[in-house]
Structures are given as C-alpha cells and as structure tokens.
Design a protein around this nucleic acid. Structure first.
Length: 147
DNA sequence: GCCAACGTTGGC
DNA sequence: GCCAACGTTGGC
C-alpha cells in the first residue's frame, strides 16, 4: 500500500492514535476493489513510500477494520469530495490499518534487482495502482530480507 | 519539473 | 459505445 510520505508516512502511522488510520483517499476502482474484496481482518501489508527521494517499502501494518465508506467523499470542498457518490450507495471505501513495525528500507531499485520479485505487481509496466496484491512467496521473501 | 502510461470524462 | 481530451500517478 503506497503513500506519499509528505502526505502520510510510516512515522505518522506509528504516532497516530491507536497507531491506526483509515486508508483514505483511494479514488481508483481497482485499488478500491482490492480493499473491498481481497482484504481480511488481520491481513498484513507492506507500507510503501512513493513519490519521494528513495521510494520503497518502509514498514508493515495490519488490516484492523474491513472496508467501509470513505468519510471524505462526502465532505464538500475537501480534496477527496466526490459529488457523484450517492450517500446511500457510497462509491469509495477504505479499510483501517494498524502499525505493526518499521522495517529496513527496501528500495524500489532493489526490489527490481531480485529475481524472486520480478513478477511483483508493483513492478509491472505502467503500474499506477496505489494498492497491489503481494503473493505469499513474495511476502516471505521480502519479510526475511527486511523485518 | 518532466513525461510516460494510464484512467476518466463527456461529446457525439 | 467510441475516442479525443484531460487529469493523475509516480519514477526519474
């Protein structure tokens, strides 16, 4: 799960109340569907810093609440307001995630270098999704490297 | 700041 | 339903 550290970083998550945050602002259907359809309570996720000097994995968090309507879509004048999202059938959802631990930084350029990780969704050409699945094999490989 | 690669929008 | 124009993402 990607976040720009200038917007919300792993340190922000560690310092957040209950070390938990609603993963707000996802406005892409595929990324939304990953949260809605493929995440269960207790699932683990890598926290990835994007659009920064050294993009890469910086920590681990866990899904602490299943997908529910993103509250920001209904707040007029908010950056994430969506006038086309009907309150009785909200278009955008988010899960809650809870801090687990910081890890050693695994830079994107290093992710690219491991043959074991060459099929990761995040590396696929033109990938712009801020939430992508990680296979069990990829998870264990990365975990043993950095955690 | 640039720009490739997408996703979305809206006219037709 | 097509597709051009536009907006966004995110590495570099």
């Amino acid at each position: 799960m990607k976040s720009e550290p200038t917007d919300f970083s792993i340190d922000d998550l560690e310092k957040a109340p209950k070390q938990t945050i609603d993963w707000y602002g996802i406005r892409n259907y595929q990324a939304r569907n990953f949260m809605r359809d493929d995440m269960s309570l207790g699932d683990l996720a890598f926290f990835y810093h994007s659009n920064c000097k050294t993009p890469g994995i910086v920590g681990i968090m866990t899904v602490s609440k299943l997908a529910y309507p993103d509250r920001l879509q209904f707040i007029k004048d908010h950056k994430y307001f969506d006038s086309k999202s009907p309150p009785d059938n909200p278009r955008w959802l988010n899960v809650d995630v809870k801090f687990v631990k910081k890890t050693k930084l695994l830079e994107l350029k290093d992710i690219r270098n491991y043959a074991e990780l060459k099929d990761m969704r995040i590396l696929q050409r033109g990938n712009r999704l801020s939430i992508t699945p990680v296979s069990p094999e990829e998870w264990h490989f990365i975990y043993s490297l950095i955690a």
